[in-house]
Amino acid sequence: MSQQVKNRAALRAATRAYRLRLVLARILRYLLLSLGLVIMVFPFYWMISSAFKTAAEMNLFPPSLAPRNWFNLDNFRIAFEKAPFARYFLNSVLVMLGSVTATAFTTILAAFAFSRLRFRGRELLFSLLLSMMMVPFEMLIITNYQTIINIGLNDTLYALILPFISSIFYTYILRNFFQSLPDGLYWSARVDGCTNWKYLWKVMVPIARPSLVTIILLNALASWNSFMWPLLVIKSDLMRTLPFGLYTFTTEVGANYELLMAASSVVVLPMVLLFLFARKQIVRGVARGGIKG
């Protein structure tokens, strides 16, 4: 009898200890994650808060954690006066739209041909393309730079779009999705007299919308943030895109970090907003093989 009671008490104690450990583990987990979160997000907070500080506030040491006036828009005003950021913004938007549209078009058509149409040497051709994927852009850039100069497109926005209109990687992603669609769908549409062209745009593209959105988002991100290529082919002030414009702005204003932070916020904000709205699609796309490399 007493043995039983003892056992029960021991069990209860063990359960309590186990629960306590679970709670502790959970607290620890949240603590660790929050610490990491603070480190990851801090630069963004620092950028935005610095953008609202005055020059005097910037020269405090140790720095103040928040600006005195959160509605101090002077830095943005001065930055926009000193450099044509509105123009940079427009250029970035134009390049992004142009490159996304062109890429989506070539990608959809090519992915369709590689997944649905039959022709000799299809698989061989595709595996050749895949092996071309590992050539880094940094290697192609040398000839492309010369090509762009030779055909006289340097210092135009076309130069920022043209080399990127065909992406093997996006075609690969979309082809995989197209191939996962059942054959029956295709043949029944064909029986009903649907042409390939119509089938592609009326059936396949709507079904593939999630994949397409992912591709478009990744492409938009890459285009918006690209730096090395504009640095090479763009010369004049009015043709710069945001990251490049921001970079040249740093040499103009030197150590006025409040202006730089205001300008950086302008560059970063659109993509942050995009990410907040389309996090799941972007993450899925990245998980599938990457935004990098």
């Binding site: 490049f244 921001l246 972007i282």
Partner: peptide, 11 residues
């Protein structure tokens, strides 16, 4: 994930 989408130049 935020640092992934932001321009290397800006950050």
């Amino acid at each position: 994930f935020l640092p992934m989408v932001t321009s290397v130049t800006a950050v």
